[in-house]
Design a binder for these strands. Structure first.
Lengths: 369, 369
DNA sequence: CGTTAGCACTAAGCACACAAGAGTGCTAAT
DNA sequence: ATTAGCACTCTTGTGTGCTTAGTGCTAACG
């Protein structure tokens, strides 16, 4: 089904139906269009056209002699070709800007916060994601010494991710051995693509450690783990409760299918990862696999600083969502996220910024020396 | 209303009503009790007793001439005094144990995973929390040097939390200054209660840095931030979709009130923090403030290793939940979490374990030296 | 020939009545 | 003190008819 096959009247009526349905969430009848759009046509003519649009698979009828609602394909044509792009009002921009003045500096927290804001702005459920970079290399490896048995592995990567991991060793390890290990690690792991690091290649380094190879072997495994975990993305969902304000999710089954995403984010991760960067991604109804019934749409966009992808943000809601408005907000958001983050760096703490991280050791017996 | 004021028959009937209602989720009538419990009484007698129990505020009638359902107070008496404690079957224990064999080592991930397991086991929504220690001190502070402008602050605490935070400085900082700063920090911050660290006390150290005070001043602010963030607890919610399987949450408003918790975890944090440690905490209906209508109950328990609290885990669901079974599982869980975590330390990676942590620097211009 | 008026038709929504069923409270008998 | 019996209450389900929104079709119209 192509947009070009539609004559002007069909386009006009399809657009009118979608616009109206987005607003009212009720099947749209011919009379309504006559009353509220100046089409200069009689209801009968509109009915005929609607019928043809139904034949084309762009409109649907919930039951005989009800009004029409758009099909997924109908929404698709609408989004691709018919919809007017919405211009944010200055009031809306002001509202966003006021809230974008985020007072935190961790990228993951910023992204989480952005998600919260996005769901508040759209009254939908928002999904935001920290970056998952396709090719990352290690810039530097360090090991911080706590005592003979406890260390902190620090890995700095080319995408400015700092990965830290606590290492606990039952056998004592002297700082000499550690220094040696550090050198070997930096010589062998720096500047190569993380995805090419294999367990054997890591264990190769064991032999380079000569006498210490057996002591160091388990540490290397931990390092391998840390490296493989660097690309783990984080997904935040917010505004789930918003769903219940929309009539389509008063049906418990539908609501459930979206709430399930909160527990199981893999699906979202898949969609995110197989989607285009820096482009608006729109999945309508059955076009995405996130909902069983195919009643929901998912729109998102990545945002970046320079050539670095910083994350992605989007919303999930009923097929009947106000695409143009949401797209406008999403575009504004992604365009400005980079600036916000940049500003943070400059303003925060008199030219200082910090990305922090807290984790727990599991009862390792760490003593002050 | 005290349990002791009830005679044997009242207790028996109250228990029977609660048990039945938990199972059936339908008002319980006198005839049902006669048929399924050998009370050796006629329906009429039971009706009289039920009436008295209603006067006492332990039972409620949805409408004239319906059966009875327990009130919050009724559940309370039931939970405190009437309920038989449930013994997990060997099959159930086996099921738990199989799933408790968690293959990860980060405490926060373990707790998240435990939450997932708990919700799967109970078919309710689970809530789990990482520890929030009342008194923590710093054991060691380190600063890892990346280049003249980028460092990683590492703080090791007495509760084995490793807090890391990236520091970016516009002005170059030599490793000499950094070494000096490290000494000052360790001399002044180690071994004192974190809650007593104030911003002025941190800025006092500025003067100790002599000539460098102005350069170091912003870094100290970041350090203060890091310290104040150490006690941040993390809350995980899982199994939200389970709610929709229960008739009480087919009412959208009720479901909404619980789903809201996912977006706004403060409420849960409050309840967690004002509750007893190492004791089972049970909040029935209006006894908690998490739901507007007071239709839900919240049960949780902290778990610890030695005298260290490792976290808390619990479930939220309808007042009509199978208290005895859930309590049994929660107890088993909290009793065994410490062991699991301990085992992890021993088994993982040939006597090594690691707690990791990944975060992002926001476009700081970090270069390999 | 495209457009429209007119009309028959369909299905949902709503109100209403009515019967069945579940379970009560009360009273009088045991 | 307990219970059988009965009237009463309220929910639930079903069936009926009316109304309403909106259709599809046909025949007339410019």
């Amino acid at each position: 089904m192509d947009y070009l096959e539609l004559n002007e009247r069909k386009k006009q009526i399809l657009k009118a139906v979608v616009d109206t349905y987005i607003e009212k969430c009720e099947p749209v009848g011919s009379k309504y269009l006559v009353d509220y759009y100046n089409l200069d046509l009689s209801p009968a003519t509109i009915r005929n056209t609607m019928n043809e649009l139904e034949q084309l698979g762009l409109l649907e009828q919930p039951y005989t002699s009800a009004g029409r609602i758009p099909s997924s394909l109908g929404y698709r044509i609408y989004v691709d070709s018919l919809m007017q792009s919405y211009r944010l009002t200055s009031k809306e921009i002001k509202e966003i800007n006021e809230n974008l003045n985020i007072k935190i500096s961790r990228l993951d927290k910023i992204i989480e916060q952005a998600g919260k804001l996005m769901s508040a702005l759209t009254s939908l459920m928002s999904v935001s994601m920290t970056p998952k970079s396709p090719s990352v290399s290690i810039v530097k490896i360090d090991i911080v010494y706590f005592d003979y048995n406890n260390f902190l592995l620090v890995i700095l990567t080319s995408v400015n991710i700092v990965k830290t991991k606590h290492i606990y060793s039952k056998t004592d390890i002297s700082s000499d051995i550690l220094e040696h290990l550090k050198k070997v690690l930096n010589n062998n792991l720096v500047n190569i693509d993380i995805n090419t690091v294999s367990l054997p290649s890591i264990l190769n380094m064991e032999t380079m450690m000569g006498n210490y190879s057996s002591i160091v072997s388990p540490i290397l495994k931990v390092i391998y783990e840390a490296i493989s975990e660097i690309n783990e993305a984080q997904i935040y969902i917010d505004g789930a409760a918003n769903l219940f304000n929309m009539p389509e999710y008063h049906d418990v089954e539908r609501a459930k299918s979206l709430i399930t995403l909160i527990d199981n984010k893999e699906k979202l991760l898949n969609i995110f990862s197989q989607s285009a960067e820096d482009k608006l991604n729109i999945y309508i109804g059955e076009e995405n696999s996130i909902t069983s019934g195919g009643d929901s749409s998912f729109i998102f966009k990545t945002f970046s600083l320079g050539d670095k992808i910083l994350g992605a943000i989007g919303v999930i809601g009923p097929k009947r969502m106000d695409y143009s408005k949401i797209i406008a907000k999403l575009e504004y958001f992604s365009a400005n996220m980079a600036d916000i983050i940049k500003n943070e760096i400059d303003e925060k703490s008199n030219s200082y910024t910090a990305i922090d991280d807290t984790k727990f050791m599991q009862g390792g017996k760490i003593n002050n020396e």
